[in-house]
Amino acid sequence: MEENELHSVPKVFEIQITAAGQKVSETFELDKSVKKVHGVAFSSEKPDLMYHRGYARLEINNKEYFPDNHAVQRVMNGINANLDNRYWPLKKVIIGNGKVKIEYTDKPDGRTVFAAYTVLLYFDCEIVID
């Protein structure tokens, strides 16, 4: 059998935060063509709010990668970082059923004023192209 070619592509999921202190729980599914997941990155159109107020629990295929109330700040990489170093590396990901569960919590930190914002969740994936 001819070896499949793997291509590196990002997969993007979106979460809306509409109220201060809100907890959003969502489950996404990775495409069947995704064979590997190398890393995760968070982004937002209001990065300051996400940096100071964002906490996320992340699960892939029922395996926990970030525990409850894990600060998003910890896994954010700014534009000073190399292009190939912007994803937080996830080790030994078994894709299994491909279910990605995220519990995003917005916690007031006293120094920021809330406005509705969107959180983008990027996965650094390798997909197979027939």
């Binding site: 940096y51 100071h52 700014g78």
Partner: peptide, 10 residues
């Protein structure tokens, strides 16, 4: 330049 836009992984 802000730490939320330019900082590397803490």
């Amino acid at each position: 330049v802000n730490n939320y836009s330019h900082a590397k992984f803490p």
